[in-house]
Amino acid sequence: MALNDTVVPALVPQIFINFYPIAIVVAIVVAVIGFTGLVLEKNDFQKILIVQIPILAMYMIVSAVGTDLAEALILPGMVVSLAELLAVSEILISREITRREKEGEPLRVLNFEYEPINMEVLKTAIPVTCIVSVIYGVILTGFTGGAVAGAGILIYLFAGRTKGFSNEFWEEMAGISGVAWVFWLLGFLIYFIAPQYWLVALFMSGGGIIIKVALKLGLLGILGREEYNR
């Protein structure tokens, strides 16, 4: 296929290069499905949901490239599409409120109440899941590892019973995440200033980022708990 004669680095294994056209074709199929849905759907709210399918196809096309540059692209792409989603849904809400105010239709205030799901698994398996994912995250290190470990902490905070650590403890952890971030930055600075100490810099930045990302995701859990489960 014509797509195969790309100027990819020699380090990329052949299997990934062979996967590229398949990924593109799948993405196109996904996009077509999404567009068909958009054309058929009449409800505005449903349209917002269906529009996520073409965006999914966009993620597929970008991630199919599979180099480190593509990894660097996918995150901002996600952030941008998330922001677009938020903006458009804000418009939808604003429009509905304006329309109902004009037509004199009463505004129904939806009352979301927090109801924990009653499942045994959520009570018993949480600590082990958390510990396993944190350990796995530490082994992975770096950004991905931080995300995995953070997900573990998140599960603990969201679903686990509120025992053990107090709110103050997690606030201290947030402070530590700030310190870890500084370590990460310092590590990068050492790369530039004194490249001969690259190993120290690697450890500083790698360790810093995992602590930082993990604890930042944990912070999300604190927010959730403070909002609903005070």
């Binding site: 790309t6 590229y20 966009m58 096309i61 692209l73 677009e84 458009v88 418009i91 604003s94």
Partner: peptide, 30 residues
């Protein structure tokens, strides 16, 4: 607001060709 909503939908759909095109250029040239 209705028009803005439609524009928002077009904008979200168009992020597919936008990022997709860039990804194709990246795949081709590195």
């Amino acid at each position: 607001l209705d028009a803005a909503f439609q524009y928002g939908l077009v904008m979200m759909i168009c992020s597919l060709p936008l990022f997709g095109g860039v990804a194709l250029i990246l795949a081709k040239t590195g």
